[in-house]
Design a protein around this nucleic acid. Structure first.
Length: 377
DNA sequence: AATGAGACCAACCGCCAGACA
DNA sequence: TTGTCTGGCGGTTGGTCTCAT
């Protein structure tokens, strides 16, 4: 049994707001405020509108200091960086852009910015698919990913793509500046690249060791629930000391993980090319990768998932391979974890530490960007 | 000038979390 | 503890506009 509707749908007006309705709503809220109850508000002022509709109208158009259109390059940068970091959490992104609404930013991203980033529009005859790039993947080219967040993958791929296209002076081409990634993160990306027929990213050659400085130690402690998340059905007594397990697994294990990966990538780079005409695609592999990226951004997500059954479960094996070194992790728990991560990722709207960290990192990006003397994308 | 495709964007829908009884 | 209600959110829809043919 579904829940009761928030209003009598038969007696509410839908569609565009008239100037009279706007005036009524604005005048009332200016005078009395919302009264903390949007549902009751339309009756009070004699509007035949749903309370949620009134709220939306006020928040998106009528409240003071709302800006529409005319996004600046700086705003573009912030949106891009935050999208890469935290995904489609438009309200959080909007909070960083005074006067902008989540709806505006969402529309702007979907209709313009995404295309601007890629610098070209989807060709009518379709781009090269993953399966054509790498025939081994033809069995995985249907459906939508279940076990890995498409949003996280999209952001990872987007960032990798952007990094690959950027200026040689960037962090990306300076291994000394690269942050350390969790071995899983590196291996996952390696697997993805190899399946795409993409040359190993220089990043993947980077340090595979596990750092153990104080910060990492603290982080392991803060993430103390991660291990049981990895193997939720395991008897804890078989898991052993969490600290030891974390030491084996490595750092930044909490997944958040792909979010962390995206944040790491954020840290690595500092320039987001907004116009592909100013970028150079250095080899065919990148072209293929870019084509696949474009497919993903166009909603034709490559299946990066665990196909149902069969020994041809190549991708799942590769994914599982990433976890082999972790004790008490089996395929079932991996799949469980992936779904859990997705669920958490999807439902988390809070302004949490990871979000703040992402923001800090995005600021770092702009700082680096400025330091390198780039102005304008 | 007509028309069809694509772009844009305001608004709606349904889900979820938190507050509260 | 459970159920209900509301606010808030992201995804999606559909109307309108623009542009190419």
């Amino acid at each position: 049994m579904g829940r009761a509707p928030c209003c009598d749908k038969a007696n509410v007006k839908k569609g565009p707001w008239s100037p009279e309705e706007d005036a009524k709503l604005k005048a009332y809220i200016d005078k009395y405020g919302t009264g903390g109850n949007w549902i009751a508000l339309p009756q009070k002022i004699g509007l035949k509108r749903c309370g949620k509709s009134c709220r939306l109208r006020w928040l998106n158009y009528l409240r003071p200091n709302i800006k529409h259109g005319g996004f600046s390059e700086e705003e573009d940068n912030i949106i891009c960086s935050l999208y890469i970091s935290i995904g489609s959490r438009w309200s959080i992104i909007a909070a960083q852009l005074p006067g902008r609404t989540d709806n505006d930013i969402k529309n702007y991203w979907n209709t313009r910015l995404k295309k601007k980033l890629l610098g070209r529009r989807k060709q009518s005859n379709g781009s090269a698919r993953l399966s054509s790039v790498n025939p081994d993947l033809k069995d995985y080219s249907t459906g939508v990913e279940d076990t890995l967040s498409s949003s996280a993958l999209e952001r990872l791929q987007l960032h990798m793509q952007l990094q690959s296209l950027q200026n040689p002076l960037s962090f990306y081409n300076n291994p000394a500046l690269w942050p350390k990634l969790h071995p899983f993160q590196q291996k996952m990306i390696q697997s993805f690249q190899s399946l795409n027929g993409v040359k190993p990213n220089p990043l993947m050659q980077h340090n595979l060791t596990t750092p153990h400085d104080d910060h990492d130690h603290d982080q392991r402690k803060n993430n103390a629930d991660f291990y049981t998340e990895l193997a939720p059905n395991e008897n804890n007594s078989t898991i052993g000391n969490e600290e030891d397990q974390f030491a084996k697994i490595g750092d930044n294990p909490k997944m958040d993980g792909l979010e962390n990966s995206a944040n790491n990538f954020m840290n690595m780079g500092n320039i987001i090319p907004m116009d592909s005409s100013s970028t150079i695609v250095s080899n065919a592999d990148h072209s293929a990768f870019q084509a696949e990226l474009e497919n993903i951004l166009n909603g034709e997500a490559v299946n990066f998932n665990t196909p149902q059954g069969g020994d041809h479960d190549q991708m799942a094996d590769i994914q599982y391979d990433c976890f082999k070194e972790m004790p008490n992790v089996n395929k079932d728990s991996l799949i469980w974890w992936s779904n859990e991560f997705d669920a958490k990722s999807a439902s988390s709207n809070s302004w949490d530490d990871s979000t703040s960290a992402a923001l800090d990192q995005s600021h770092g990006i702009f700082h680096d960007y400025d330091q390198l003397g780039y102005n304008g994308l």
